[in-house]
């Protein structure tokens, strides 16, 4: 469960996130949309504990990320828009490293890594140095390493970038299964189709504020628009 309360984040004079409050329940698939510089990545970075909020708070599974960061992160899987990987390691070594950082048992670690690697078709790359892998393959390595410790909350920033249609499908299915199994999924994306297809609820951010939150149907009803695209454009149009 993710609880965001009156979250505000300033960069100097710029208000990147402006009094955002949101609760994403256990087992909910939440997709956050918004134009560039809407504040999505900043919100996610505060959720991941990479920066302090100017005011407000974020709780992951009841743990305040500012007060109990270790407990919160232990329950979370976070993949940024440009994930860091140790380029001289192989994916198998990297999975082992992150698994151990999460305190996983040897057997569970191996089983989960093998299962997810198989699912994301990483088998042939497991023993190759990460530096030689393609962008999409690196993205899959980052996703597997994030998911293997069985998180209760998944926070992914633009996870589809670099993935081919096949692996985008695999990721979407995996995340849906995670949500169905009770994991809270929070994904930021620019692909409206992902939100339409996958999300239980959609949030649209604009200029640091949550302009709208609700299921696809609720957003349609509230905005009297048929498609998510037209809703998105009308809510994020600066000219009006």
């Amino acid at each position: 469960m993710i609880e965001i309360e009156h979250l505000t984040k300033h960069f100097g004079d710029l208000k990147a996130v402006d009094d955002v409050s949101l609760t994403v329940s256990k087992g909910e698939f939440f997709v956050i949309l918004g134009p560039n510089a809407a504040g999505k990545t900043t919100t996610i970075k505060v959720m991941a504990g990479l920066m302090k909020p100017t005011s407000g708070s974020v709780r992951i599974c009841g743990f305040d990320i500012g007060v109990s960061p270790i407990e919160a992160r232990r329950r979370m899987a976070y993949v940024p828009d440009f994930p860091f990987l140790y380029d001289k390691l192989t994916p198998a070594e990297f999975f082992r490293f992150t698994g151990k950082l999460f305190g996983m048992e040897e057997a569970a670690m191996e089983a989960e890594a093998e299962r997810l690697a198989k699912r994301f078709n990483l088998g042939e790359f497991l023993a190759k140095p990460i530096e030689g892998l393609s962008h999409g393959t690196k993205q899959r390595v980052a996703i597997v390493s994030a998911l293997m410790h069985s998180p209760e909350v998944v926070v992914f920033d633009e996870p589809m970038v670099g993935l081919d249609p096949h692996h985008s499908r695999v990721l979407k299915d995996t995340l849906r299964e995670q949500a169905d199994a009770g994991v809270t999924v929070f994904v930021s994306t620019h692909q409206l189709s992902v939100a339409e297809e996958m999300a239980d609820r959609i949030g649209i951010m604009h200029q640091g504020r949550l302009a709208a939150v609700g299921s696809h149907e609720e957003l349609q009803a509230a905005n009297r628009d048929s498609t998510l695209e037209s809703i998105f454009l009308s809510l994020t149009n600066d000219d009006e």
Partner: peptide, 25 residues
């Protein structure tokens, strides 16, 4: 996940960076 067992962060970080440096060399 094993909450009781302490995680050897330092040893893991040294290990992974030692491997990186050795392979770079």
């Amino acid at each position: 996940m094993n909450d009781a067992k302490p995680i050897p962060h330092w040893r893991l970080l040294v290990g992974v960076n030692r491997t990186q440096s050795w392979r770079r060399l």
